[in-house]
Design a protein around this nucleic acid. Sequence first.
DNA 1: TACTGTGAAATATTTCACAGCA
DNA 2: TGCTGTGAAATATTTCACAGTA
Lengths: 208, 208
Amino acid sequence: MKLKLPQVTVSRLALYLRVLEKLSRQGQELIRSEELAERCGVSAAQLRKDLSLVGAFGVRGVGYQVRALEKEIKRILGRDRIWHLALGGLNELGRALLAEERLARRGFRFVAAFDWREEWIGQVIQEVFVYSLEQLPYLVKESDLEIGVITLAGKEAELMAEKMYQAGIKALLNLGPDPLELKAEGLLIHNADFTVAFDLLAFELTHH
Amino acid sequence: MKLKLPQVTVSRLALYLRVLEKLSRQGQELIRSEELAERCGVSAAQLRKDLSLVGAFGVRGVGYQVRALEKEIKRILGRDRIWHLALGGLNELGRALLAEERLARRGFRFVAAFDWREEWIGQVIQEVFVYSLEQLPYLVKESDLEIGVITLAGKEAELMAEKMYQAGIKALLNLGPDPLELKAEGLLIHNADFTVAFDLLAFELTHH
DNA sequence: TACTGTGAAATATTTCACAGCA
DNA sequence: TGCTGTGAAATATTTCACAGTA
């Protein structure tokens, strides 16, 4: 319960897991740190050190059992279970998330969606029902919604965040443009503006 | 041209810029490091150190001129110009990207989209025309396409990446599920699976 | 006075290099 | 023999604390 890892290590573990899942589907049973690291774009030492922070899963002189390592990393990341997600905001981004196979396949399951717009309420998108915000508290309890995923901007994002918090959601992933200002006791908030990836590329292209 | 910055610094600069753009729109003229840092969720020392790595833009005893700082960071990040993007893959994610105001507003402009699927070719989505891949080399030259944005998976992603490289694209941003294996001389590749953000949250929820 | 800019100190992360083991 | 696991060394990043200045 108290495991502390550098955030970069956690995100690399997520990366390793993606590759392991793929190898596993392809039926590969064994992999060496060097090969796995190469596939993930990190050094072998880095990979082994990351793994050593959470346990010793390999066999000296041999390598790692793909399935066993996959299972271990899943457990460590909390990916050995189903997470119930609530979508806040039925814009293009929100609809793309509902359609994301990566999330569905990995146990991140959108159970309900919420919006203010009359045109969306009552619709079913990718098998997910769109509710009005009045129904939020009831559904959080009833469907055990844990993570709220926000795609809205500005005041709408802020209001959605508050409503979700009041309804009993434990964590918010904000994929919208504006960092959430809400500070709420016991609520875990991650602001994750994916468009930063474009700035990184622009920077590197600009400075060789 | 040769400016070297830690990647974390670059992504924080992108964050600062987002907040500055907002302040600028709201007409605020001045901001202190402490306040800006607070808004961005970093320490004031961190913010000042980040800025000091690229220059000294503040006024001691006063703070930073919002517009001037915004302009400087834009220049440093290569955000003081229009980037021409090519979308590779007209799935839900691709269509969400075409609709992303954040990108349009910040100079990341999708100029053309490419797909194999007959049903998409010839369509216009968010004012962007969808072409078949034969037209890729011509359009890269004609429209000066610099960054290819890939939303596809597996073999399709790999093939799209190769075609884009051969057509003369300078950089690829891969938002699809699989790290690109392509290694091509002079091509800048970023794999940026945004779904990692969900794993990070799951990890933190699991380990308090 | 009230801030920024920045060396120096403190931490954190990565790499090295090899001991340990199937 | 051919790997992993891991202390120790090397780097990198963050924080501290205060000199510098409008």
